[in-house]
């Protein structure tokens, strides 16, 4: 079984175990959580292995830092690197295009402006 499939199965079980959780930790190596529903600033983030306070509003499908992350740190999701931090973020903060960038090809907005 691949690491990815193992991660999926663990996570599937985790979600089945509790409807209280609002975030999922997809892989042991991950330093972020993924929200399974909208979370408001100050609300308690609950994932299988623990809980913490959300530092800001974060939408479903978006990422929250599981640890303090510094500029240049790699971010891991599914146990795989998904880019590098461009700014620091504290545990419980939103990890997205304002502080994380691709190690491959950058993304763009609706005006065609690139976020390299």
């Amino acid at each position: 079984m691949s690491a990815l499939t193992q991660a999926k199965d663990d996570e599937s079980r985790a979600m089945a175990d509790s409807t209280q959780i609002n975030c999922v930790h997809l892989h042991d190596a991950d330093n972020i959580l993924v929200c399974t529903r909208h979370i408001r600033s100050g609300e308690t983030i609950r994932y299988l292995a623990g809980s913490m306070a959300a530092l800001e509003d974060v939408s479903i499908g978006h990422k929250i830092a599981l640890a303090d992350l510094g500029t240049g740190d790699k971010v891991y999701r599914y146990g795989a690197p998904i880019g590098s931090m461009t700014q620091p973020v504290s545990r419980g903060g939103h990890v997205h295009i304002h502080n994380l960038k691709s190690d491959y090809i950058g993304i763009h907005d609706r005006q065609g402006k690139k976020n390299s």
């Binding site: 990422k63 999701r77 090809i105 907005d109």
Partner: peptide, 27 residues
């Protein structure tokens, strides 16, 4: 081409980078 296969709506929905989108697509 100058652009990766990553639309603005992907970012609205929480995806941040091309490799993150790739890992999800791969599954």
């Amino acid at each position: 081409m100058g652009f990766g296969s990553f639309a603005p709506g992907n970012a609205d929905g929480g995806l941040t980078t091309l490799e993150e989108k790739s890992m999800g697509a791969y599954s």
